[in-house]
Design a protein around this nucleic acid. Structure first.
Length: 294
DNA sequence: AATGTGCCCAACCGCCATACA
DNA sequence: CTGTATGGCGGTTGGGCACAT
């Protein structure tokens, strides 16, 4: 059983398999896909790196602020936080928090755990670390008691006085979430994903970072020669069986989306998301996706 | 140029929740 | 009710890289 970084070859196998068969029982995936990995490893690789709806690159200012606000309300529940940031994974957010945001907040004199000013001799009596932990646990317990399953109402009910810049946008996001929790969400039926955990992304929102025009490899782990990966990938016929469509969930239920996204002549259409401003992104086409991965 | 140091992030690990027989 | 399989989550690790000395 292999461990360590994934190779381009392994990625290729996994992508091929998922695209052709959808996400089924992860335990069976390595065997069926011809991989010497455990199912868990395959799932992680797919969800954290290979999924075509992932955004790559640094979080924008807006996203960062969202993370800070959501963290102040949810704590280290990275998957919940990630569910409010389309195209971002819990792992990515967790890493970004630990490497960037934590330091940033500390620099600003804010405790990244409590989200309150660190030096508060005159403010309120400062809790000792152990007391803070206890306090946190109590808070968590209260949250669980109030609403064990519904994270959004949980947030609302336990919300601290608004101190953040972006709280309105957070609330909008949370409100949207409420809207999605209707007992009969058609998208949830269509999509393989549970909308509670994974943000719904409209077909025209499936974005990947710009592929470098020189087609040099942009990513880190899979460094081996991969420029021909796209050619090697056996993308499935667009007329997938319904089962695939239901299970994979990554693509629109409407396959015409592909036609919109993939230009016949291979040109890439630039789409700039104004809210996420930082880097121009492109509508997903197969080639750019493959480029962006490798 | 060689070495040391710190940072970043993909991947792993262990635990927990849920489904099912 | 119990045991097992599976998937998901959060914490941690370690390899690779950039920069400093």
């Amino acid at each position: 059983m292999y461990k360590g970084p994934w190779t381009a070859e392994e990625d290729k196998k996994l992508i091929n398999f998922i695209l052709n068969n959808g996400q089924c029982c992860w335990r069976a995936v390595p065997k069926l896909a011809g991989l010497l990995r455990c199912g868990k490893s395959c799932r992680l690789r797919w969800t954290n790196y290979l999924r075509p709806d992932l955004k790559r690159g640094l979080l924008s200012e807006y996203e960062e602020q969202m993370v800070i606000d959501l963290h102040s309300q949810l704590g280290n529940r990275w998957s919940k936080i990630a569910s409010h940031l389309p195209g971002r994974t819990d792992n990515e957010i967790k890493n970004h928090w630990n490497t960037h945001i934590k330091k940033k907040l500390k620099k600003m004199g804010i405790d990244p755990i409590t989200h309150k000013p660190i030096s508060t001799a005159t403010d309120q009596p400062q809790l000792k670390p152990q007391q803070q932990l206890q306090h946190q646990k109590e808070q968590e317990q209260t949250q669980q008691q109030t609403s064990p399953t519904d994270s959004t109402s949980e947030i609302d009910q336990n919300k601290e006085p608004e101190t953040s810049l972006q709280s309105s946008s957070i609330n909008e996001a949370l409100e949207e979430d409420k809207g999605m929790t209707s007992p009969f969400d058609p998208m949830e039926l269509i999509n393989g994903f549970c909308t509670d955990e994974v943000p719904l992304i409209e077909p025209d929102e499936i974005l990947v970072p710009c592929a470098p025009s020189s087609s040099t490899s942009s990513s880190s782990s899979s460094s081996s020669n991969s420029s021909n990966l796209f050619q090697d990938l056996q993308f499935p016929d667009l007329e997938w069986p319904c089962d695939y469509n239901n299970s994979i969930g990554l693509w629109s239920d409407d396959f015409s989306t592909w036609n919109l996204l993939i230009n016949d002549d291979g040109d890439r259409e630039q789409i700039v998301d104004p809210s996420l401003s930082q880097c121009p992104r492109m509508g997903l086409d197969q080639e750019s996706w493959a480029y962006s991965l490798l």
